[in-house]
């Protein structure tokens, strides 16, 4: 009943953080896109709260920050022995905004910068639903939003995996039962809705959760540079320590 420890954790993995320093331009771009996918939303919300910027200013700040950071490659200077990448990125963002403020006294609407395609409207909508207590500590908000981003991204990746493996029904069950709003939904009701036996629902959901867990771990692995940082972030996101 025992098995090899950690056999379900990623063994070989792509690290977007490491990829920022890769000599190959395509790898750098791929790494950059992976990081932006997770970090833009927490960064935007954090900027709105921490620096009290209006939506337009915050959108420009985030666009400028990520584009400048990519061009000048200053996130590539990250040293995993000093801090976690997400902490480093947040500090870089703070410095960037402070510098922008000092240089122009206020962040102006950028005219000539290339724009990333980011859904700021949905981020603003989520921000409006936050309670006052959730915004008291912007650094905590950033971390919480970072976790949310990882889980959302993992859901998308997991869905893609299910489609690829022709297991859409597994995802549909997972979406209905684990992501749905109906807390009273039972396996029996789910079985009726999908014309499956309770045993099949149980097995499909068990597979889905196991696969989703694996996807989350791979996503975290992408966003960290070292094994130690990976373990720390798994603890932060999932509350478990890899032994």
């Amino acid at each position: 009943m025992t098995s090899e420890p950690n056999s379900h954790f990623p063994t070989t993995r792509f690290s977007a953080v490491k990829g920022l320093r890769n000599a190959d331009a395509e790898t750098r771009r791929r790494s950059w896109n992976a990081l932006i996918a997770v970090y833009w939303r927490p960064s935007y919300k954090y900027t709105r709260i921490r620096w009290k910027l209006d939506p337009e200013q915050a959108q420009d700040a985030i666009q400028s920050f990520f584009l400048t950071a990519f061009e000048k490659q200053y996130l590539a200077d990250f040293d995993p022995s000093i801090a976690r990448f997400r902490t480093y990125l947040r500090i870089c963002l703070d410095r960037f905004i402070l510098k922008e403020r000092q240089s122009s006294d206020r962040l102006k609407r950028g005219g000539d910068i290339e724009h990333l395609s980011l859904d700021f409207a949905s981020a603003d909508s989520e921000l409006n639903r936050l309670t006052a207590s959730a915004t008291e500590r912007p650094d905590r908000l950033f971390d919480q939003e970072w976790v949310r981003s990882i889980l959302v991204l993992s859901i998308h990746k997991f869905k893609a995996t299910c489609v690829e493996q022709e297991k859409e029904i597994n995802f549909a069950l997972f979406e209905r039962y684990d992501l749905g709003d109906d807390a009273s939904l039972t396996y029996a009701q789910l079985g009726e809705q999908f014309a499956l036996s309770i045993e099949t629902v149980t097995n499909y959901l068990a597979w889905a959760r196991r696969q989703f867990r694996q996807t989350v771990l791979e996503t975290i692995a992408e966003l960290t540079a070292t094994e130690e940082e990976y373990r720390e972030e798994v603890l932060a996101v999932l509350g478990i320590k890899l032994t």
């Binding site: 976790v147 949310r148 889980l151 684990d178 992501l179 959760r209 989703f212 867990r213 996101v237 999932l238």
Partner: peptide, 14 residues
């Protein structure tokens, strides 16, 4: 979000 975290935190009994 908390539901998903606890889901992933659950012991893997496979």
């Amino acid at each position: 979000l908390e539901r998903l975290r606890s889901l992933v935190e659950e012991p893997d009994l496979s």
